[in-house]
């Protein structure tokens, strides 16, 4: 990303809780306008990294800046530029949805914000709940209010920590439509999620974290190509077996079904040639596109084996 300004920069971020190291030297630049995915298993340190960014936790070493503003020295500006959707489902039981959003606007110095509040409510399908008390909302609705709260001050950088947990399919799609539109309007989006297909379709670039470190950082397309590639699934005819030459790229065998890894799509020619030479009859054949879950399991699994 050559001409891009840096929206969020983590430089050597180290965070300890007592003797436990939650972030072990994280360095990462996220460009302005990116749709960025932060993935990793439970306890990887994603929320901790976001907390350090938001000023909820203080780093022990390193520094973090939002659009060039240090989150400690220049905390007021940095926080104005950030909209955070927290992972925990929290709400203030004293107020209605609209009051909650008005109060949140006022914290950012916005007195008259009703037009934008109405637009957010509409986009998150909350309009008819605007005057309900927070206590009376369902879990999914409360989560949508959290999204709304993060957006009241139109922050250029929006961080969503598992925003779709507990949100139904229809609304999840509505939420993504809205977030995508904000991204197209120039907002930088940072997303953590455990729904990998969500990350795969939405994020341009992905960091994979585990045990407080970044294990992989690349564009989604490169990650998929590097660590997953296509899979060729063959249904062998009765009594046939896989030629010796193809054993090395065999990923799985399920009865007569054999799954072969293809580093690149043009390796397909070679595989078919070997099958033909060996005289193996293939009953059926299909090609599976690369899959982020596969990438995830490989990278995270490798890290497991080498502590």
């Amino acid at each position: 990303m050559p001409a891009m300004r840096v929206a969020v920069s983590f430089a050597g971020v180290l965070k300890r809780f007592g003797a436990f190291t939650a972030l072990d030297g994280v360095s990462l630049d996220i460009g302005e306008g990116e749709f960025f995915g932060l993935l990793g298993p439970n306890g990887a340190g994603k929320t901790t990294l976001i907390s350090c960014l938001a000023g909820l936790a203080r780093v022990d070493q390193g520094s973090i800046a939002v659009l060039g503003h240090d989150v400690v020295r220049d905390y007021r500006t940095a926080r104005r530029l950030l909209g955070i959707v927290p992972q925990e489902l929290v709400f203030d039981p004293f107020f209605t949805v609209r009051e909650t959003l008005r109060i949140q606007s006022a914290y950012f110095g916005l007195r008259r914000n009703d037009d934008w509040i109405d637009e957010i409510l509409h986009n998150l399908d909350l309009t008819d709940k605007a005057d309900s008390n927070m206590r009376r909302l369902s879990g999914g609705m409360k989560r949508r209010v959290l999204v709304a709260q993060a957006l009241v001050h139109r922050p250029p950088v929006i961080v969503l920590d598992e925003p779709t947990a507990g949100v139904d399919v229809e609304l999840r799609q509505g939420l993504w439509r809205f977030i995508r539109r904000l991204n197209q309007d120039g907002h930088t989006i940072i997303l953590t999620t455990h729904y990998l297909e969500e990350a795969e379709t939405l994020c341009q670039r992905i960091a994979l974290m585990k045990r407080g470190r970044i294990l992989a950082l690349d564009s989604t397309a490169n990650l998929l190509a590097r660590f997953s590639g296509h899979a060729l699934v063959l249904q062998l005819a009765e009594g046939q077996c896989l030629p010796e030459a193809l054993r090395s790229c065999c990923r799985a065998v399920r009865g007569r079904e054999v799954e072969l890894a293809l580093e690149r799509l043009d390796a397909l020619e070679g595989v078919l040639a070997i099958l033909r030479q060996a005289g193996v009859t293939v009953a059926d054949l299909r090609l599976q596109p690369p899959d982020l879950e596969d990438v995830f399991m490989r990278i995270v699994g490798v890290a497991e084996a080498t502590p």
Binding site: A54, G55, L56, L82, P86, E88, V90, D92, Q104
Partner: peptide, 17 residues
């Protein structure tokens, strides 16, 4: 109350001095 429920977040995230 806001610490126990977690809603203290809403005042910790904005630029309130």
């Amino acid at each position: 109350q806001s610490k126990v429920t977690g809603s203290i977040l809403f005042v910790l995230l904005p630029p309130i001095s």
